[in-house]
Structure formats: C-alpha cells, structure tokens
Amino acid sequence: MTGETWTIRGRVWLFGSDLNTDLMMPGAVLFDTEEAQTRALFSGHRPGWADQVRPGDIVVAGRNFGCGSSRPAARSFANLGVACIVADGINSLFLRGCVSYGMPALACPGISGAVAEGDVVTLWPCEARVELLGGAVLKAVSLPADLLRTMRAGGILPALEQRGLISPSGTQG
C-alpha cells in the first residue's frame, strides 16, 4: 500500500467493549427510516451521543466492537460523519460492513486503554499505524489493500450501481 497517503485525524469518543449492533440500531427502529436509524445510534447506551458527535470525529472502543446482528449499523456511523472506528477488536461481520458500506475502521489492540475522550489522534489506515496525543505510535492490524480501497471508495454499492445491477437511489418503481 506504499505510495498511497490516507491520513485521518480527529477527536476521540471513547466507548467500552462488547458493544453489539442491537445497541447501535435498536429493534424499535429496525423497520424505520434511515434517518431514524441513524439518530438512534447508541440511543439506549449513551443517550444524546448522535447529536454530540461531529463530522471528522473518531470512535475508539474496546474488544469485539459490533458483535451480534447484521444490521447496517456501519452505515449509521458513516451518516453521522464519523471519520474512523478504531477498536481493540472488531467483530468480523461488522468489519465486513465497514468495508461494504465504506466506513473506515481499524482494529488496533490496546487503543482503548491508550487514549482519553477528547484526545486528538492520527491514523494511517494503509500503514496500519495510529499516532496518539504526545506522539506515541500503536500498530494496528493490517487490512488487505483491496479491502482498504473499497472502504475508502465508499463501499461496494457504487460499483453495483455503475454496472447497472442496482438502480440509483430514488429511482425505485
């Protein structure tokens, strides 16, 4: 992945471990609008957070982030403008979602214990590197170049649309 520069710098929101997708997209909004689903992100777990987070912010969490249902919760983070999710560990189905929905995400063991809420951190996803406030560097888990490219390019939907397999948004019926 050398030769490509992808730098993400933002303010940290710190979350715990084992945050499941039922917390990110509660059953009450499972059959509701995308807007309602986005506003409900962590509504039970951390009420009001969806109004506090700002575009460009970074979500840092502990182990097993995004376990549970295959709900399109990665999309909600992207809709709120979250620049990247960095967690000690990311559930494999949720990480798939981050690739396919185009939501930047990195697994970085130790990150949740190394930052405080409000810290500004810098990430280089292609180099699997995270620089903390004060300059210390943590090694992240490398993602294959293909997956990083898809994640960065907005996921797999644009290609399905360009190939004429799925209609553009708003064209149904």
Binding site: S70, P72, R96, G97, Y101, G155, I156, L160, L165, I166
Partner: peptide, 12 residues
C-alpha cells in the same frame, strides 16, 4: 454477510 454483500452475491 451484510445486506450489501448479499445484493452483490445476488446480482453478480
């Protein structure tokens, strides 16, 4: 997989 991956599988 995710719903988008499923749509990819169904269409491609």
């Amino acid at each position: 997989v995710t719903i988008l991956d499923l749509l990819q599988a169904a269409t491609t």
